[in-house]
Simulated assay, not measured.
Amino acid sequence: MSDRVLSLEDPQLRIICAPIQDVTNHEFILENERLKVALNVFRAERGFGRGIAAPQIGILKR
């Protein structure tokens, strides 16, 4: 599974994100895994990358 990383111009990156309430929540755990996979795919495709924020792959949480 891979996610498209949104570009800086994408208006979705300007949305105020909801805070995470429970880091043990199953949904949070799955979203965290999506972040890891997306970063690994990005690194493999481009040869660089240190971190990724949830909104960059459409997870509107902070």
Results as ranks from 00 to 15, higher is better:
residue 1 M to L: 04
residue 46 R to T: 12
residue 36 K to Q: 13
residue 20 I to M: 02
residue 48 F to E: 14
residue 40 N to P: 06
residue 17 C to E: 07
residue 25 N to K: 02
residue 45 E to T: 03
residue 22 D to H: 06
residue 21 Q to S: 14
residue 47 G to H: 06
residue 8 L to F: 05
residue 61 K to L: 08
residue 50 R to N: 15
residue 32 N to G: 14
residue 14 R to H: 04
residue 23 V to C: 12
residue 22 D to Y: 03
residue 57 I to H: 09
residue 25 N to E: 03
residue 8 L to M: 05
residue 48 F to Y: 15
residue 61 K to C: 06
residue 62 R to F: 00
residue 33 E to D: 08
residue 18 A to K: 13
residue 54 A to L: 12
residue 4 R to V: 14
residue 49 G to I: 06
residue 16 I to G: 02
residue 29 I to K: 05
residue 52 I to H: 07
residue 5 V to G: 09
residue 54 A to W: 00
residue 9 E to L: 12
residue 12 Q to Y: 06
residue 18 A to Y: 02
residue 13 L to Y: 02
residue 30 L to R: 11
residue 28 F to Q: 02
residue 27 E to I: 07
residue 50 R to Q: 08
residue 59 I to N: 07
residue 47 G to A: 10
residue 39 L to V: 09
residue 6 L to K: 13
residue 56 Q to A: 12
residue 18 A to M: 10
residue 4 R to S: 14
residue 33 E to N: 12
residue 1 M to K: 09
residue 7 S to M: 03
residue 45 E to C: 06
residue 4 R to Q: 11
residue 18 A to S: 12
residue 21 Q to K: 14
residue 54 A to I: 04
residue 16 I to V: 15
residue 51 G to L: 14
residue 38 A to I: 07
residue 46 R to N: 15
residue 20 I to W: 02
residue 45 E to K: 14
residue 57 I to L: 13
residue 49 G to M: 00
residue 53 A to M: 10
residue 26 H to P: 04
residue 51 G to C: 15
residue 10 D to C: 05
residue 30 L to A: 15
residue 59 I to F: 09
residue 59 I to G: 06
residue 35 L to E: 06
residue 45 E to V: 05
residue 42 F to G: 07
residue 7 S to Y: 00
residue 4 R to N: 11
residue 42 F to E: 07
residue 45 E to P: 04
residue 32 N to K: 15
residue 31 E to H: 12
residue 16 I to T: 07
residue 54 A to Y: 02
residue 25 N to R: 06
residue 2 S to V: 09
residue 17 C to A: 11
residue 13 L to S: 08
residue 55 P to W: 01
residue 24 T to Q: 13
residue 31 E to V: 07
residue 33 E to S: 11
residue 58 G to A: 00
residue 58 G to E: 00
residue 62 R to P: 00
residue 2 S to T: 08
residue 5 V to N: 10
residue 33 E to W: 05
residue 35 L to W: 01
residue 25 N to I: 03
residue 9 E to V: 11
residue 14 R to V: 05
residue 19 P to A: 10
residue 39 L to S: 10
residue 62 R to T: 00
residue 8 L to T: 10
residue 36 K to F: 03
residue 24 T to V: 03
residue 21 Q to L: 15
residue 1 M to A: 11
residue 39 L to N: 10
residue 35 L to S: 01
residue 39 L to A: 12
residue 54 A to F: 09
residue 26 H to I: 09
residue 57 I to N: 09
residue 24 T to L: 12
residue 36 K to L: 11
residue 46 R to D: 02
residue 41 V to Y: 05
residue 44 A to M: 05
residue 27 E to A: 08
residue 27 E to K: 01
residue 56 Q to S: 10
residue 31 E to W: 04
residue 52 I to P: 04
residue 46 R to H: 13
residue 54 A to P: 10
residue 49 G to V: 07
residue 5 V to Q: 13
residue 12 Q to N: 08
residue 26 H to G: 08
residue 53 A to E: 04
residue 46 R to V: 02
residue 40 N to W: 05
residue 11 P to I: 09
residue 55 P to E: 04
residue 39 L to W: 07
residue 7 S to K: 09
residue 32 N to C: 12
residue 4 R to W: 06
residue 12 Q to H: 06
residue 10 D to G: 01
residue 51 G to Q: 14
residue 15 I to H: 07
residue 8 L to H: 08
residue 27 E to Y: 00
residue 25 N to G: 01
residue 19 P to Y: 01
residue 25 N to L: 01
residue 52 I to D: 08
